[in-house]
Amino acid sequence: MLATAIVLGVIAVALAWPVPMALSRAEWPARAPAMALALWQGIALAGAASMIGGLLAFAAIPAGSFAAAAEQLAPALLHGAIPPQYAVIHLAALTLAVGLAVHLMLNVALTAVRAERERRRQHELIAILGDPMPGMPRTLVLAHPEPLAYCVPGFRTATVLTDGLVQALGPDELAAVIAHERAHLDQFHHLVLLSFRAWHSALPWFPIANRAERAVALLTEMLADDTARHEVGDRALGSAILLVGSSGEPGAYAESGGVSPDRGMLDARLARLGISL
């Protein structure tokens, strides 16, 4: 079990810092955003599993296996008679593993509840204030001069535009924006972003959690751009991005501290289209 604990510990350390740092600085994710997004998800899941698994393996060293440790320690939960071979350091590792697992699960649940509350609020507001866009199902227009576009997930998905956006864009550019927002919904980007928002919320002091959330947010924007490029071409999409700017698409879960698109993300998206500011 000691060897298992060491191996899992090494993996946890590697996935906690050097591997995600290297990925966040690499240039290839812009060329393969789907693969990079899958890799980020794998890093997050494997990192958490190896960290918790390493602590549990260390705690189980006196028993020689997870099953034997569970068999020996389970009665202690009821009778309080902890086997003498378990030192304080083993019990501390067990407590830390359980506490970390519970902390992560609670943060996922809390983030999901907050996101659901915000989603319902958005649906209520756009149902009252929005007007259906002719010829565009599940698309609503708000009477507002600022050029904004965003999507609201759920059982009843909706793409929301403002009058300012509709008036500022031509037909192809508008089609690019709508295709981009619908790609977010069709590819369930809100669920991916929710998991990384929960990770960052659970470990706000952990620098790589913030870096991971920002990287994933940019990758989802690139994937949505790829759908729009396929439907309307690079020229219309690039023109729409230039006209709307980074402030034209509020980030998912921005109300609860999530990442909002900024100038860096805007530059990265335009660079893929061969456009520079």
Rank of each mutant, 00 (worst) to 15 (best):
Q167Y: 00
E213H: 11
F206Y: 11
P204V: 10
V160A: 01
M222T: 14
E221M: 12
A224G: 08
A183S: 13
A149W: 06
P171R: 09
D163M: 09
D186I: 00
G233H: 05
I178M: 10
T159I: 12
L194T: 07
L243V: 06
R229G: 01
L223V: 11
V216E: 10
A175I: 14
L242C: 10
R197N: 10
R229L: 15
R156N: 03
R182M: 08
I241C: 02
S195I: 08
L165W: 09
R211E: 14
W205N: 07
V160R: 00
E231A: 14
H190Q: 14
L185N: 09
V177S: 02
H200R: 15
A202I: 06
D226N: 15
P171C: 01
P204I: 14
G233C: 06
A202S: 09
F196R: 01
L219E: 10
D186C: 02
A228M: 10
D163I: 07
E181Y: 04
V152Q: 06
D163N: 15
L193C: 04
G248Q: 11
A183R: 00
R211W: 07
A158W: 12
L191E: 09
A217L: 02
S246E: 15
L218T: 09
I241V: 14
H190T: 06
P171T: 13
R235V: 14
A215Y: 03
E173D: 11
P207L: 04
V160T: 05
D225A: 06
F155R: 15
V177N: 04
A236Q: 07
R182H: 11
L185E: 13
W205K: 04
I178H: 01
A176F: 04
E213N: 08
E221C: 07
Q167C: 01
H230D: 13
E231L: 13
S201R: 09
D186Y: 01
I208C: 03
L174K: 08
I178N: 04
E231M: 13
G233A: 03
A212H: 05
A217W: 03
V192D: 12
I178R: 07
L203C: 11
S247C: 10
L148Y: 10
E213W: 01
S201T: 14
Q167T: 13
G170R: 03
A215V: 02
D225G: 05
D172K: 11
T220N: 03
S239T: 11
F206K: 03
E181H: 03
V152M: 08
A176Q: 06
T227N: 07
D225C: 03
R211H: 05
G245Q: 01
L148P: 09
Q187V: 00
A175K: 12
W199Q: 08
L243W: 01
E181R: 00
H180R: 13
L242H: 08
S201I: 00
L218D: 05
A209F: 01
E146K: 13
A168S: 14
F206M: 08
P207D: 03
D225F: 03
T157W: 01
R235D: 15
P171V: 11
S201V: 02
L165A: 10
L165F: 09
R182Y: 04
F155A: 15
